[in-house]
Structure formats: C-alpha cells, structure tokens
Amino acid sequence: MKELERARWRCRRGLLELDIVLQRFIDEYYSGLGEMELRQFEALQDLPDNDLWDMIALKKERINSDPQPVLHLLQTIAAFQETKIPGNKYGTKT
C-alpha cells in the first residue's frame, strides 16, 4: 500500500541535484520497474547522497558491483525543463 508515495518521499534528499533526478526517475520509470529493478533502486537510495550523486553524475561505479540497469537509467535521465530544450535558443554570437 502506498508504495509509490513511500518511494517518492524517500527521493527527498540532502542534495537538490538528487531531489530532481530521483523525482524525475519516479515520474518516468517507477511504475514500469520489475521486482529486481525495484530492489536495485532501493539499494541505490540507501547510499549516502554524495556517493550516489558521484555514481550518477561522474559515472563512478563501485568495483565488484553487479551491472545495474537502474543506475544506468538514472545516469541518462535528462533533468532539464522540457520547455527550455532547443540548445540554439541559448546560442551566443561566438
């Protein structure tokens, strides 16, 4: 009961970067996760904030860890605002 709410609340972290990426993950992928992926996601959530962020942002993976499809999803999540996409809109005259 209330698994989604529980998972969403536990995406509240000390780092804003993680708040945004994890919430986005919940919105996009959570409902489609299988048993094993759910366990992987929970294991990742148990990591300290800075370690988890380094694994997501700098692709620092721990040696001997199993391949983690969930981590790869987190690494590829685009967390920018959809309405601001076209890169050239920010283009400068350089």
Partner: peptide, 22 residues
C-alpha cells in the same frame, strides 16, 4: 570541471564544451 559539465548537461541540456549554461 567534470562535475560542472555533468550538471550543465543534465540540468540545462547544454554541454559547456560547445554551449553556454543558462
């Protein structure tokens, strides 16, 4: 600035090697 580059790509959709960060 590897961490900054990742943040820019992830949160601004801009790779600072090619584009400025809003």
């Amino acid at each position: 600035l590897p961490g900054i580059r990742e943040i820019a790509m992830k949160f601004a959709n801009a790779d600072p090697i090619h584009a400025p960060i809003p």
